[in-house]
Every structure is written in structure tokens, then in C-alpha cells.
Design a protein around this nucleic acid. Structure first.
Lengths: 346, 346
DNA sequence: GTTAGCACTCCACACTGCCGAGTGCCAACA
DNA sequence: TGTTGGCACTCGGCAGTGTGGAGTGCTAAC
């Protein structure tokens, strides 16, 4: 985006301190206050002139005549993109994070929960972690258990150590031994392959095996098809939503309800987070940029996380637009890396 | 509790209509309004006399001098215990409920979620369902999968068709075959027994087997001990929390935050719900009766649900004290029965 | 025991005046 | 030409005020 170009150093510095100041106290900041900045040796009047320019460019705006100025979304954007001085984590903090995310005792699912909680605890905002994309993870083990005559419980484990289960229905009634055989077959053929790949193979196998002599294999592949049927990735772990209730900018009950509703509906949020899968680092949505009206007064700072060098999910922090980006950004970045590391197969 | 005794029919009827009225409009109800009740042929002045009595007994109370009266907790309690005319569900409604809870395609976990959602959707309040108590359910199948050298993923399925998994650590390193054998042994010995029973047996077996020749069995039992180690039942499925944000009596943000915090902490709520396990039908906590200050302005209507004639969990509805008890009570009752039925092994 | 009447209390709401903060504009200055 | 002080102006927030309505408690009469 242009915008930055037309501005001289001074205006930019002014914008920067204005935004920082506003993030700090949450009050519209006026010319008098800014004139006290030691690096900005200007009278309030001059500052007002600069501010008028900034306002004309849509970077800041006055809630009403006699209030100070507040950054607009574009203002925040410019700030975040070019003005921000991120402060990397102290190594002590980093060690602490690493310690809390690197535990041998836990399943992947627990780990995701922990990461989410960590995000919210540290930032005092809401933390979110999407479950690893099912397509990218690979199969480690599959198992069939008969429940009732034609209902079969499928349990499968991925290389991220997540355990999935679902009930499938079959026309034919299978014995425990037959199911065992089917599982053995699938385990021998598909272990280590990604679920997406398996779906491909299954379709091909069905073509090929149609006239095969081995009915057991056909059955097995049929069951695999049911088990791995495409399912939208529509889940995430959210923590610390309640932290959001403390922010005055979100204190409108109607709005807040809509936001929390969006959290429990999930699909909107997931859609938003999916957009961050491609980004190769921290990605930020400020206010209405997200395109979802419920996030109008929120910002979302995300980073993708990877297992085996492949991006499988996204984590992030949701909070009011007025948040301490300079701390949140490096923190989200690091957390994503640590989570990825913790999830890597040992 | 006494209280009802000292009151004549008329006062009770007056209390009843007052509570009904208040539940309906949420406004303090005054003598004028009550005098219009066709069954209560009294002038406002007389009604005021009766109300003064009721107030003296702590059943109703005036928010301020010139407002009408509002039921107190004791007032609600008397109303719910002796005055309420519950309205049983229409059979059409019942069929509909049955339909939504009786599905073959789902795992138990999905079913609990569905029940919770049902509770919240129908009542427009929050629905909660505790997971079946692990102790009472019995084992259907257990399985060990090696993850890394000494980390083993244990997967076990209960007769409620719930799939549990956890990571255990062992000193010794086991081969896949050894793990398979251990699982086979445990499955043959323990299938169909309750987890509590299994824990008992495991301890005894360890005593007995200490000098056994068969190391494999010892290992198996050891692993079983790790897998079934006592864990507090501390989980439930909550739905429709956001519905609570619409109620004016809960619209204080500070309070609401505390309530939602309690929901995510879980243990307080679980403790409360556990108290309802013994009750042999619908149990109600009104306002501060629960003993938890976060529920000061809430009521909780619960009913235990059973599998195989044994109570394994509790479900209920959380809403403002001012709720339509006459509808909620039978609905919660029926839902508990339907959920129990749906969970019964087929 | 029931009722009408009456004085009283209190909330809700609208209106007022006032203060402080911050602005935009202009004229003077370097 | 850019910077500055001065000044009139605007607006939100707050405290104080007055009014109307709702509902009460009390008392005296039925």
C-alpha cells in the first residue's frame, strides 16, 4: 500500500508515538501531550498541523471535536508494517516458553490446548490454535472395532499422535477377525502416507480391485474410504475468551455476544485462520480488515506452525485493535515455532 | 423447609401468581397489577397487606420503596417445590427430541454434545452435560501403540463407545508384538468390567503376580495400572453460554466474566453437578443456594442420566433465576432419560 | 376482614449550566 | 516558508434540579 511515501520522517515519527501512546493508555491523544515527547521538539500548534495532515490521509481520526486523535485501521496498518520496533523475546522468556511446550507426557491434543492456553495467559487476550490439517498429517495406525452388527468404530492415529475416531456403517456384517485383517492390510499399505494421499490411493485401488479375487482387500479399501472421507477441518482450541470481556472497547454486550457466537460457530473463524496458512510468517488482521464484522474492533495476530517442514496449522491471538503489537508479534511467532517443534514425531 | 405451613391458600396463590408474573415480564410486580388477576378478587390495598406478610416471611422483597415486589430465593424455592404446575411435554415435542437424540451414526461423545446443544437451543439458556463417569463405565477394548522408545499410546474404548487415549511412560522398551500380547491379555481378562473394578483387580494382580513366571502378564498389568490410574472426572460439554449474555440480570460485565471463567475452570461447576448425581430426579439450585457466588443470579436445573440402570452423569440447564421452571424442569427430565437411552449399548 | 383515600418515597428522565480538554484558524515571528 | 502563541469555539462529562409516575404503608370507614 502507498501512503507512507507522501509522509516525511517527522510525520511518521509523530504517528508512531501517537499510536504507541494510544496503545499505552487507551485515551485519544492530543497535541499537548505529544508536544512533551523529547524527540519531538515542536509546539502543540505545529503538531496540530501535522495531525491535520495525518487525518486528511485517513491515518488518524478524532472521535469528536474536542478529543485527541485515535489511529484508524490504516493508521495501525502503517504502524505495524513500517513503524513498529518489535522487541524480541528475552532468552529467559524463551526458555520458559520452551519448557512449557516441550513435554513428553502429553498427547498432541493436550499440547495444542497447552499452546492455546499459553497464548492467552501471556498476552491476557484470547489464544487460538487450529488442529493440524488432517490432509497433511500421515497415518500411523488404523483399527476397526465392531460395535453393533453393522456399526464399526474406526480409530486411527496420525504421526502427530492425535487419535481420531468415528463410527461407520457397512452393509455387510464383519467378524472381529475380518476387521482385524482389514486393519492389518491397511496398516501395511498406508502407514506413513498422508491422509490426502491415502484418499487418492483408495479411489485408484477401488478401480483396480473391482475385479480382484481378494474380497477382503476390497472390503478393507471400502472401509478406508468411509473412514477417511473428506471432512472439513473445522476445529480449533480457544482459550482465554473471557479475557476479552475486560476490554472496554469490546464491552458492548451485543457485540460481545456476536463475537462469542462466532467463536462457537467456528466456521467463520476457521475460514479466517485458513487464510493465514499460506503466509510464511506472522500475519495480522486489524479490525475490519478481516472482512468479518464481528471482528470490527479486534485484531488477530497469527502464525502458521509446521510439522516435518510442512505447514499444518495456524495459531494466534485475538484481542482488541489496541494491543501491544510489538510484544505480541514476536511472541506469536516464537510460539508457533515451538509448537511445531514439540509436535514433530520423536 | 417450613414456611409454607403458616400461609393460607390465598397467600400462596398470590405468591404463585406474583412469581409467574415476574418470570413472565421481569418487572417487579405491584399490587395494582395483581388485583387484576381474575381468580384473586381483592383490591390493591388488601393485596398490599398480604404482600407485607409475604415480605415479612422473606418470600418476596422490594428493590426499593416505590417498586413492586420480586421473589427472593426462598420465594422461588417455595414456588418450585410446592406451587409449580409443571407442564409435561406435548408428545409431538417428545418425538422430536427423541429423533434428535437417537442417531446411529454417532459416537457417544458426539451424542453428549448434541444433548448439550439441544438443552441450550430449546431453553435459550446454557446447556451442560457431564461426561459419563469413568469409574462406572466398563471396558470394551484396550490397545497399546508404541510412539517413541518408552512412550506408549494407550487407546481404550468403553461400553458407552467413548474413545479415550493417553500417553504412558515405561521403563522397559517394548516391541510391537509384546504390546500386542499385553493388550490381548488385558482384553481377555478385563473386557466388560467397570474401570473401577479393573483398578481393584490390577492392584490384586500385582500382589499375586509378583512372583509369577510370566513376565508378560506382569508387564501388561503394570501398563494397565498406568492407563487406568485414577483421574478426576472433570469434564463436561457446555453449549449456548452466549445465550446467557442476553439476560439483563446477568448483564454486569464483571459478574459475567466471573461466570464464564468458572465455566472454563470447570472444577467448580463439576463439583456442583456431582452433587446432583445422587438425586434421583430433577434437582434445582436457585441463586446462592448453589454455594458458589458466581451463580448468585443463576439457577441450575439438573437431572442425572443412566446407562444400564446405573447413574453415570448429569445434565442440566443454567440460566437466570428468573426462568420458566414449569417448562424447563420436565424438559431436562426427559432429555436425561432420552440421553441415557441413546447411550445404552446396542 | 376489606376497602378507599392520602401522604410519602423513590426511580427515571430530561434539562441545565459549567468545566476542561482539545481543536482550527490566524496573525506574528524567525 | 515553516513555526509559534493566542483566541474563539466545540464537545463530552458531570453534578444539580425538577417533574411525573408507580407503588407503598397507614389510617379510618365500611
Amino acid at each position: 500500500m502507498a501512503g507512507g511515501q507522501d509522509l516525511n520522517e517527522r510525520s511518521l515519527y509523530l504517528l508512531k508515538t501517537l499510536v504507541e501512546r494510544y496503545i499505552q493508555d487507551g485515551q485519544p491523544v492530543g497535541s499537548r501531550l505529544l508536544s512533551k515527547d523529547p524527540n519531538l521538539k515542536l509546539s502543540p500548534a505545529s503538531i496540530r498541523n501535522v495531525m491535520a495532515d495525518l487525518e486528511e490521509m485517513g491515518l488518524i481520526h478524532s472521535p469528536h471535536t474536542s478529543a485527541g486523535r485515535v489511529p484508524t485501521v490504516s493508521g495501525y496498518r502503517l504502524f505495524v508494517d513500517s513503524l513498529l520496533t518489535v522487541r524480541p523475546l528475552a532468552s529467559a522468556e524463551l526458555d520458559q516458553l520452551q519448557a512449557s511446550l516441550h513435554s513428553q507426557t502429553e498427547t498432541a491434543t493436550d499440547l495444542l490446548g497447552k499452546a492455546s492456553k499459553l497464548l492467552s495467559d501471556v498476552t491476557k487476550m484470547a489464544g487460538v490454535v487450529t488442529l493440524p490439517r488432517r490432509d497433511s498429517v500421515s497415518l500411523r495406525h488404523i483399527e476397526f472395532l465392531p460395535m453393533s452388527s453393522t456399526r464399526i468404530l474406526v480409530i486411527f492415529v496420525t504421526d502427530t499422535e492425535e487419535v481420531h475416531n468415528k463410527i461407520i456403517h457397512t452393509e455387510k456384517q464383519f467378524s472381529t477377525a475380518e476387521l482385524q485383517q482389514a486393519a492389518n492390510y491397511l496398516n501395511s499399505v498406508f502407514t506413513g502416507r498422508s491422509l490426502a494421499k491415502i484418499r487418492d490411493l483408495v479411489v485408484k485401488d477401488l478401480e483396480k480391485d473391482r475385479h480382484s479375487v481378494n474380497q477382503g482387500m476390497i472390503d478393507a479399501v471400502n472401509m478406508a474410504q468411509l473412514a477417511f472421507a473428506q471432512q472439513p477441518d473445522d476445529d480449533y482450541v480457544l482459550s482465554g475468551e473471557t479475557n476479552l470481556m475486560g476490554f472496554s472497547e469490546l464491552s458492548d454486550m451485543e457485540r460481545l455476544k456476536q463475537l462469542f457466537d462466532a467463536f462457537s460457530q467456528k466456521h467463520g473463524v476457521i475460514h479466517l485462520l485458513d487464510q493465514c496458512l499460506q503466509a510464511d510468517g506472522v500475519q495480522i488482521f486489524i479490525g475490519e480488515e478481516s472482512g468479518y464484522s464481528v471482528f470490527e474492533r479486534c485484531s488477530l495476530v497469527t502464525a502458521p506452525y509446521s510439522v516435518n517442514d510442512e505447514v499444518v496449522g495456524v495459531l494466534g491471538v485475538i484481542g482488541p485493535t489496541r494491543m501491544a503489537y510489538e510484544k505480541v508479534i514476536p511472541f506469536v511467532d516464537v510460539t508457533a515455532k515451538l509448537l511445531g517443534a514439540a509436535l514433530n514425531p520423536k
